[in-house]
Amino acid sequence: MKLFSRTTPVSSLAGRPEHSPTSPLSVHAMTVAYHQRPVIWDVEYEAPAQALIAIVGPNGAGKSTFMKACLGIIPRATGLVEFWGKRFEEQRHRVGYVPQRESVDWDFPVSAIDVVCMGRYGMIGWFRRVSREHRSRAMECLEMVGLSDFAHRQINQLSGGQQQRVFLARALAQEASLYFMDEPFAGVDAATERSIVEILKQLKADGKTVIVVHHDLSTVADYFDNVVLLNTRIIAHGPVSSTFTNDNLRRTYGGRLTILEEVGESMASQR
């Protein structure tokens, strides 16, 4: 009986690439369903290391669901998600997460520095207090996003852009190697957007991978080097230059957006 050896790359579904254990995130045959309807359908993905990756797709395409399912915040119907070849539970400390800004109550009685300290909680562990070193590290992170003057300000007295930067500082405080960010540019002013992009580029330069749910198609090419086009399933993924094409976009958005044409043209003229 002829059997293949394990040394050849194997996968449960032939023709699909076996994921390398060095990839920060590999998703294999992931399906997330809500009442029998797939929200994410049989997604196969491997994120490159040290990249800024945008997840792009129409509303209701399952972009946030994809992130949350990867992190186990919502259950998967099936599928395998590995971080550097291991399960999330073993790699938790290397993965940072920035939820949507609207997902929390900004009227909560905490100060900005308290929120940033939350990023350190994973390192601190159960029961132990936040030590002075952790606090000063959190302060440094706030400084990186330019909010050190607001450290003791209540979070409801911050503007939308500042709140988003506090979230970013919290993610920085996690000192992860892979970041998931759910719409960090939603409802922020142009200046904040620029400073967030600067931070993302810095993260990449430090060898980290950032996966961002992004809405604004016109800035994808400027901000990111890698893109995932998602509409229930992954339509295309890869470097922006080769993937973010008119054709792929139309397949993702299904001709719903006439603006796509313009975006495509502007892309072409840039190149």
Binding site: G72, I73, V95, V104, D105, V110, G122, R170
Partner: peptide
């Protein structure tokens, strides 16, 4: 007193609380 920070994070941001393993 013992669970101050766990209570704080689970009240403020349950999703992050979950992702951090609390």
């Amino acid at each position: 007193v013992v669970l101050w920070k766990e209570l704080l994070i689970s009240s403020f941001d349950p999703a992050l609380c979950h992702a951090l393993g609390f």
